[in-house]
Structures are given as structure tokens and as C-alpha cells.
């Protein structure tokens, strides 16, 4: 009996240690990649955890912040207007939003390129024709596309939030070179992006808090959605799959015990 337990502990030990090792190495890797200097605040998000969801009102406000502030420099190339159905917009509203943008199309029958109003199937147009044009307009710095930004930075949502509210006066004003700005969240503290939000920057369509914290939270929620539009479906499917697998674990365990009963009996 004791030997049996010992054997189980030993077997479990190998498995556990291997798992712990894997998880430990995995956990430190992203932490290491974060680099030094960035002060990232932990913020509570509705989309955290297995039951996470996107607050549609917040998504719509966030989209407005993106449209009126971020989109002057940052693209959203993997998002099509039709995807805005996720934000709670109706088909008509999406058509109306798309129609406010112009996209290049063609060539037409004469072989000419032309511009037309966007339709829901179009992707959100980027502010610059290409990366060089973007750099030329921004003092050499490239404003990255935002479709994946929440997944492309360690601790994405918290990082973006901390960055947006992290613009402060530098401890010594002479440290900040021309065209750079002091930011507590950015690695190295010097960022080429001027402070985008100050609070009360825009008037929200549905009214609401326009403090820098509230606007930042909304736009980060929007960006988290843009990076993982499948998140709600994924997590909801996950809950169902987990319940199914829990049941299957019990069923298969029971069937194993039933089948092994005669062997176990001869052992005792």
C-alpha cells in the first residue's frame, strides 16, 4: 500500500515538475521581453478571465476615440467595417459609418483608379499610403497599425492604458530631446508619440465621462476587441467545452475503474 502511494507520488512528481518547469519558463519569457523602465499599472477589464466580455457601449465610445484621435496617425488594417457589428451597430449604421470614408478602387473600364465611398466589406482605410509616408509625416517614427497592438505588446491592455495615462513632466526637463515625450509606461521613458489624450478631447456621441482615464479605458477596450474579435465566442465556447470535458473525465474515469475492478481486486 505504501509502495503504491510512493509510486504514485513519484510518478506525479515527474509530471508535476516537468509542468512546473514549463510554466515557469513560459511565465518569465514575456516578463523579460517587457524590457526595463516601463511602469505598467494593473487595471480591471470586463474582458479579463474565462467569463470576460466586451462592454458594447464602451466599444462604441472607444471606436469614437479611435476615429477622432488615433486614426489621424494609426491604421486599423485588419478590421473591415462589417466587423463593427460586434460593437452593437446595426447594418444600416455600419453602412453609414463606412460611407463616411473614401477608399481607392479600380481600375475602372477606362483603366483609371478612382475613389468611392466605403462599403461594409471594405477594410478601414489607413491614414498613410505606406510606411515611408507615415515616417515622413512623423519625424521618422512609424505609428504602428493598431489592429493587433493589444496582442503585440506584453500585458497588452494594461500596457496601452498605462501608456495613454502615463504622459508626465520629465523629472528634469532638459532630459527630453526635441520630438520626444516623457512617458512613465514606455520602456526607456522617451516616446515619439505626442500625448494623444488629455481628457475632454471629444464629445461622446452618447454622452458620458470624458476624463483621460475613461477615454483611455474605452479606447483600450476597443483595441482589445480589434486584436481579438473572436474573444467572446472563444471564451463562451471554452466554457461549454470545459463542461463537456469535465463530464467526459468522470465518465471515462468511471468506465476505467469498472473495467479494472477485477484486476484491482486480485491485487488487494
Amino acid at each position: 500500500m505504501f509502495k503504491r502511494i510512493n509510486q504514485t507520488i513519484c510518478a506525479g512528481g515527474i509530471a508535476m515538475l516537468a509542468c512546473v518547469g514549463v510554466m515557469a519558463t513560459a511565465a518569465i519569457t514575456p516578463a523579460m521581453a517587457a524590457g526595463g523602465g516601463g511602469d505598467i499599472k494593473d487595471h480591471e477589464w470586463t474582458f479579463d478571465g474565462p467569463f470576460g466580455y466586451f462592454d458594447k457601449a464602451s466599444l462604441q465610445r472607444g471606436f469614437q476615440v479611435y476615429r477622432e484621435v488615433c486614426s489621424s496617425c494609426h491604421g486599423l488594417e485588419y478590421i473591415a467595417f462589417r466587423n463593427f457589428a460586434d460593437l452593437g451597430y446595426s447594418e444600416g449604421e455600419i453602412k453609414a459609418i463606412a460611407a463616411e470614408y473614401e477608399v481607392m478602387d479600380g481600375p475602372d473600364e477606362e483603366g483609371e483608379m478612382f475613389t468611392r465611398n466605403a462599403i461594409p466589406a471594405d477594410r478601414v482605410p489607413s491614414p498613410y499610403a505606406n510606411q515611408n509616408a507615415a515616417r515622413a509625416s512623423n519625424g521618422g517614427a512609424y505609428p504602428p497599425d493598431l489592429s493587433l497592438i493589444a496582442k503585440a505588446r506584453p500585458n497588452g491592455a494594461n500596457y496601452l492604458y498605462s501608456l495613454l495615462v502615463g504622459y508626465k513632466d520629465a523629472p528634469h526637463s532638459d532630459e527630453v530631446p526635441d520630438g520626444m515625450y516623457y512617458n512613465t509606461a514606455y520602456s526607456g521613458n522617451l516616446i515619439a508619440m505626442p500625448q494623444p489624450l488629455y481628457g475632454d478631447d471629444i464629445e461622446l456621441a452618447g454622452g458620458g465621462d470624458t476624463s483621460i482615464e475613461a477615454l483611455s479605458e474605452d479606447v483600450v477596450t476597443f483595441l482589445a476587441w480589434a486584436a481579438e474579435p473572436e474573444m467572446e465566442t472563444r471564451k463562451r465556447t471554452g466554457i461549454a467545452v470545459m463542461l463537456f470535458l469535465f463530464v467526459m473525465c468522470f465518465v471515462s474515469y468511471g468506465s476505467m475503474r469498472y473495467i479494472w475492478a477485477d484486476i484491482k481486486k486480485s491485487k488487494a
Partner: peptide
């Protein structure tokens, strides 16, 4: 897969 799909990955690979 369903709850922490990018935990074992590296964020830089989304750039």
C-alpha cells in the same frame, strides 16, 4: 486554447 491561447507565445510575433 480557449482562455490563455497566447500565454506560451511571444507578443512580438504579432508584429
Amino acid at each position: 486554447i480557449f482562455f490563455y491561447p497566447n500565454f506560451l507565445g511571444h507578443p512580438d510575433n504579432y508584429i
